[in-house]
Amino acid sequence: MNIDIDTIIFDVLIPVIKIIVMILFPMIMVMVMLWVERRGIAFLQERLGPNRVGFQGILQPIADTIKMLFKEDIIQRQSDKLIFNIAPVVVLATSLLAFCFIPVGMTMSIGSYNLTFWVAESPVGLLITLGISSLSVLGIVFAGWASNSKYSLLGGLRSVVQLLSYEIPIGLTVLTVVLASGSMNFIDIVNKQNEMGIWFAFMMPVSCVVFWIAAMAECNRSPFDIVEADSELVAGFHTEYSGIKFGYFFMAEYAHMVLVSSLMVVFFFGGGLPIFPNVEFLWFLHYIPGFVWYFIKIMFFLYLFVWIRGTFPRYRFDGLIRLVWKWLVPLSLLNLIVVAIIRMIV
């Protein structure tokens, strides 16, 4: 068996680096988002926000992380310790795992080697990603049950209710994307948008909006943060967690936000494609690498999360169910039918 240096570099070293980068990427984004959220909300609320640690408070996330690491880890005597400890890991691990199929940029040719910006490519990448990201609910239910606190339990129960409502519109809208692109491979979906010269958001605006609303519910973000609901459930499923275990939940929530924004960008906003790819005099935009475009796009959606959080009150959970089953599900079904018919004709 002859092992040459090229095999080691291209088949072992680069994939390993990619894996490490793709695990670090969401974590770093969590740090970035912590700062963006705190400063962004402060900006919306006419106050300053953290601006003491480093330039404009840029080191605040690091200070927060250090604080969290050194906090006492309280485990209730009556809690189910095994599940109590597993829950944050489940939540964080599933959020990070789902990133492995996300293309964070376009293929880049370096000499004869084509550098790709995704860890793995699969013909059913979309299904696997959606499946994995839904698994995080399991961790939330674990946490709610194992904490032996009624607030946590209610939070855990609510998360199941929430799952039952948002998963369906997500599935139905993703189907329209699959119909339009003819593939369940993320890379094909992006390439199809390149080929057609139009982002799917403008082709299927209804899918885009419904997916965004359902995705906000999936992240447990305001106005659908009924699982945490700080005004009535104290902190919902993570009421009893402290220290870095709470930090895990926190990171998982933000990683989930990054994931959902990524899906949004890949499905509807052309992934790593530049904006206006067909406009002649904007040719120079093509020289900006794909991952930069991807980053700019997800930052827009991440800021949208912050913006929405700073604006809206929270839905009651029956309100969420009503919204989803009375409006989003019929709407997305209708949308699916319309897209399918158009797809048949064209």
Binding site: I41, Q45, E46, S222, D225, A229, S231, G310, P313, R314
Partner: peptide
């Protein structure tokens, strides 16, 4: 009261100003 309804402190800060 908007805070109780889950509006994350925005109106609260407006009113406190």
């Amino acid at each position: 009261v908007t805070n109780d309804a889950g509006a994350y402190y925005t109106i609260n800060f407006y009113t406190f100003e």
